[in-house]
Amino acid sequence: MIRRTAFALALSMVPAAAMAEGTMPQMDFQNPLTTAQVLWMVVIMVVLYLTLSRWGLPQIGNILERREHQIASDLAAAHAAKAEADRAVAELHATMKQAREKAQADIAKAEADAKAKAFTDAKVLNDKLDAQLEYSEKQIAEARTTALAAIKPVAADVATTLMARLTGKAPDQAVLAPEIEAALAARKAA
């Protein structure tokens, strides 16, 4: 910068070859236009300054401020929405966990209930079957006893009739009775 300025100074102050007119127009302070341009510059710059400082620059400042505001509020809204979403996700996870635990507990309870019910049902059925079995056995025993009781007079009757038909005379009941008793016993033993 310094070297360039020095070079520029040397070139502009002593441009012997270039000084066709003799002096630099910039240094010609006899020329009324040299000072007149400064006066008009003051007018132009004052107008420019007032235009920019009163109207142009505040407008841009407003735009930039509004944009900053908008960005800040948008960011805040986005942050709030993200927090909300995070909370909702956490809530969802918690609910899902809770629901899963409850479902598992329900399943376990239902299973236990079903097992217990099946157990009691089976027990009731068993008892009932046992009772029926006992009753039936008793009935069978009763029937057998009755049948056995009924078979003796029939056997005596048949034996008497057979003997009467074969021999022509009724057998002695005292002899017949023990014989039938023995035969029945043998049959029962077989």
Partner: peptide, 28 residues
């Protein structure tokens, strides 16, 4: 003529000549 480009004259026609409004002021 390397310095002729810096020579001041009046701009904006006769009006500029009357109020010494220069070619430099035109650029401003």
């Amino acid at each position: 003529d390397a310095l002729g480009q810096f020579r001041l004259s009046t701009g904006l026609g006769p009006l500029g000549a009357a109020i010494n409004f220069t070619n430099s002021n035109e650029a401003m």
